[in-house]
């Protein structure tokens, strides 16, 4: 784990967003909303928290993107930390690309597992966390889930298992951007609050401002919050965070921008970069 450096992590999150938007601007459609809401958490994980090596599959900390459709953010961070060649992102959406619309670890060994079908990530995370306990390994396992994804029953099978097995080396992040394809999660199907649900399942829960790298760092650095319990960070985020005209709207869950819209998004990023001195 690296010490907290706000400037560095905000810049990494920004660069992830720029990779997400420029990839879609160049190569067309992708799940932009969730990739942008989760960019800060992914930046903090790979930029400061995780003990990560692209080559050391066995011993590195594990990251499972349970909400696999947010993969542009994952590709974006991989490009920034040098696990992949950024130029290769230009193959996105093209025949034979190693960067499909949901991440494929058989094509990118820098990833820990293929995902895309919702509800697989927490069970996979339980497997990695349990393997560490069985084999005496010290790596941590991080799982990033969506809030719409919480409708999948398999997650709750895993939530019960993780608490029962006292997997305190497992840390989940719930990217609560409050939107899914059909609208507000509260209107689609969200009978109770996520904090209450995970608490009742035996997890240790913290809610944080999920687009604030400082709040995310503090929570991730503090995990496990209680010995003998899995930890979950409910990250209160804004869907499509960072591109003002896309923010907090369900219709940008998946985006196939017009040239004008793409240029507008890139211009907004350019102005942030100019203001912060983050020009490439």
């Amino acid at each position: 784990m690296k010490p907290f450096n706000r400037e560095e992590l905000e810049r990494l999150a920004f660069n992830i967003r720029r990779n997400v938007v420029s990839t879609i601007a160049t190569n067309g459609e992708g799940h932009v909303g969730g990739a942008l809401s989760a960019a800060d958490a992914i930046a903090v994980l790979y930029g400061a928290i995780m003990n990560y090596s692209p080559q050391d599959l066995q011993h590195r900390d594990k990251f499972i993107l349970s909400a696999g459709h947010k993969c542009l953010a994952l590709y974006g961070v991989m490009a920034e930390i040098g696990a992949i060649d950024k130029a290769e992102l230009k193959t996105y959406n093209k025949l034979g690309t190693r960067f499909p619309g949901h991440p494929d670890a058989t094509k990118l060994p820098c990833l820990d597992f293929s995902t895309g079908s919702l509800g697989h990530g927490l069970p996979l995370g339980c497997g990695y966390a349990l393997a560490a306990k069985l084999q005496g390994e010290s790596y941590r396992t991080y799982v990033l889930m969506g809030d719409g994804e919480q409708g999948e029953g398999s997650l709750w099978e895993a939530a019960a298992f993780a608490a029962h097995k006292k997997l305190d080396n497992l840390v989940a992040i719930l990217d609560e951007n409050t939107l899914q394809i059909n609208g507000r999660t509260s209107e689609v199907c969200k009978p109770t609050d996520f904090e209450g649900r995970y608490t009742s399942f035996g997890w240790s829960v913290r809610s944080v401002a999920g687009n604030d790298v400082g709040a995310l760092y503090d929570a991730l650095a503090a995990a496990p919050f209680e010995a003998g319990k899995p930890s979950i960070i409910v990250a209160k985020t804004i869907k499509s965070k960072g591109i003002s005209f896309l923010e907090d709207q369900a219709k940008y869950h998946h985006w196939n921008p017009s040239r004008e819209s793409a240029d507008q998004a890139l211009a907004e990023l350019d102005s942030v970069a100019a203001e912060r001195g983050w020009l490439e």
Partner: peptide, 13 residues
């Protein structure tokens, strides 16, 4: 469902 995915991760280790 949890069991199958969990086993997949165990095998990766």
């Amino acid at each position: 469902q949890n069991a199958v995915s969990l086993c997949a991760a165990l095998s990766r280790q």
